[in-house]
Design a protein around this nucleic acid. Sequence first.
DNA 1: CGCAGGCACCACGTG
DNA 2: GGTGCCTGCG
Length: 755
Amino acid sequence: MINSPAPSYLDELNEIQRNAVTTLEGPVMVIAGPGSGKTRVLTYRIAHLIKSGVAPWQILALTFTNKAAREMKDRIEKVVGSSANRVWAGTFHSLFARILRVEAHHIGYPNDFTIYDTDDTKSVVKEIIKSMGLNSKEYSVGAIRSRISSAKSNLITPKMYGYNEELLAQDKMARLPMLHKIYEKYVDKCKQAGAMDFDDLLLQMFKLLHKVPEIRTKYQNQFQYLMVDEFQDTNYLQYETIKLMVNYEGSNQNICIVGDDAQSIYSFRGATIENILQFSRDFPRVQTFKLEQNYRSTPFIIEAANKVIKHNKNQIQKKIWTDRPDGNKIKVIKAITDTDEGRRVADTIIEQKNRYNLSNQEFAILYRTNSQSRIFEEHLRKQNLKYRIYGGLSFYQRKEIKDLIAYFRLVVNAKDNEGFKRIINFPKRGIGKTTVDKLIQIADDNGVSLWTCITSIDFTGRSKKQLTSFVSLMKALRQKVQETNAYEAACFIAKKSGILDLYKNDPSIDSKNRLDNINALLDGIQEFVEDDEIAEGEEFSTDKSLARYLQNISLMTDRDTEDGEEVDVITLMSVHAAKGLEYKSVFVVGLEENLFPSYMSMSDPEKVDEERRLFYVAITRAEEYLTLSFANQRYQYGNSRMNSPSRFVEEIPHENFEAVITLTQKDHLSKPKILGNFKKAIGQGKLSYIDPSNFNPSPSHKIKEGMKVMHLKFGRGLVKKIDERMVASIYFEDLVDNAEKRIMLQYAKLEILED
DNA sequence: CGCAGGCACCACGTG
DNA sequence: GGTGCCTGCG
């Protein structure tokens, strides 16, 4: 190992990339333009650390999306094998949540804390406004939530807020003088419910490290090497937390940040480019690498991107370039209405598929707001083009799913007031609004949770019976959860709560869909329980409890749930969601003033600059073909509005454009020909077929190293190693990617083929 | 207390 | 175009 030649992956890098990868000690800053091989540098750097003898679990790699984290781990695994699983790679939120699951008791939270999602948060704020007798028209939940979030992101506690003249004056101006009081109550309520919102996952992590020296030392010692992706998207709180981990006496400050100020698009949630500029001041020993060569796009696209971003002030000097030969010019579609735009985009996709022999998965339609997706969806469906929409209402946001999960939450954490309110009278059990309001009032007055309230107060009158039976239902559910695994418990809850019956007994289509969704959720839980593979990035754990399951899903978005079957689909998503991705052919649509740039940004030059960076991100997703489109007229909020073309289109030199296509009457009449689907055979991932009924798993204690085995899901494999925790490393011959899996023998379904 | 229908309000992006 | 809140009636 030690005498082996220089690792071959280093040959895949250009000189600057290689230097960034091999500079392991001390602070490192990588400024990476779009398409410059940033992910490659990040992953190879981690691989290089491991090859240089650093233990995988000593590496902390923070990203902003689950997708980015997963991709990173997949790629590290290709270089260093399955030990990549032990790298702490994930989003800030998910990794901090994981640590807090172990340490939260140090700062006064239960380790089984609930994570409040945006809806829960809104509901808490709403309740506070009501209880304070404030006018809900003046105190809008959205505005308050964002002020609270921003206070947390800037490490301003409710107490500090109350003393901060500037903030108080701002609130007065905004006619929200009681905001600091609401903030204070909000924090109390969450704490009391044993709940953390998304900001708390960061804030409480900071507090944990800040206030508990032995915990701080523990993690400072563990994480010898830190990497932060998309550093331009970090907020003050995140940066302070990172510094807390890296800065201590005797620290080597092994931190590597990767970012691009031109792609900073999250200032709305407190991200600040200032962090990149500040980094060099905070870490004067920093070594900086600038990746400017673009490997993704053709020259016309790159030139357009450079020209557009030049309109922004305040940026780190850099210019991306490519040595790729000339490609296609940028196509512009001028449509009359939003409907025309949808139709023309669908037509153009068909045309490109035929002319360039492209498959669906090589296309993406990117828009500024999720609400624009519907029109494209309709037209793609009309043309029989397969697509998938990301964002919007996710599986976990559906009512029936949220209801069932609310039961899970309340069973696991009795203090979870938001879960409580959701299900106290669902399905209907005769506990009406009056009773619930009374409960909330009493709980609030006494500073206890609703559950404590309901169990410790002797109720009188009509509701008494119903409340008593609800309490005994919950106790029965809790009992079951203690005794059994997540799947059995979940089925029990779905049944005993009456949710299953409710939808089963209603013949409507709507109920059938909801029932299907609930069954899909239960299937997912069964999978979680039966899964014998150690999930990527997860610590070794045989915990199959409902509590554990909840932890797994509370930070998931629908982008993380694999649809499985359909791979060859056109992608529809917001530009924000597209960051970090690339497609052969990209359509950036709705390029009109007031839409992109958004009407909310128009009054503030800095906000328009952010919109421009967003546009920069959008067009640099394209590898070969870029199409920009806009409509003269568009339906917004139910009425038709006229908008002029986006200034961003004008900022691209017109010689980069194909002749502009205008919609004519003739175009309306002509129907494009639909040719057959150019579906490319996807040879990967084909597994040998196993008939489950003929499959006889062998007892797990008989599995030994060196055996050839059959796995129901992965096919034939060779047991390479079994460690002391009874985790087997098995190489599956049918798998193309990540063929070596770590399997928990305790749960394994393996049949011995040869000793 | 439950239900149906009307209506206001909201759609910018993510974990 | 969807959702969730309010109101009035049974």
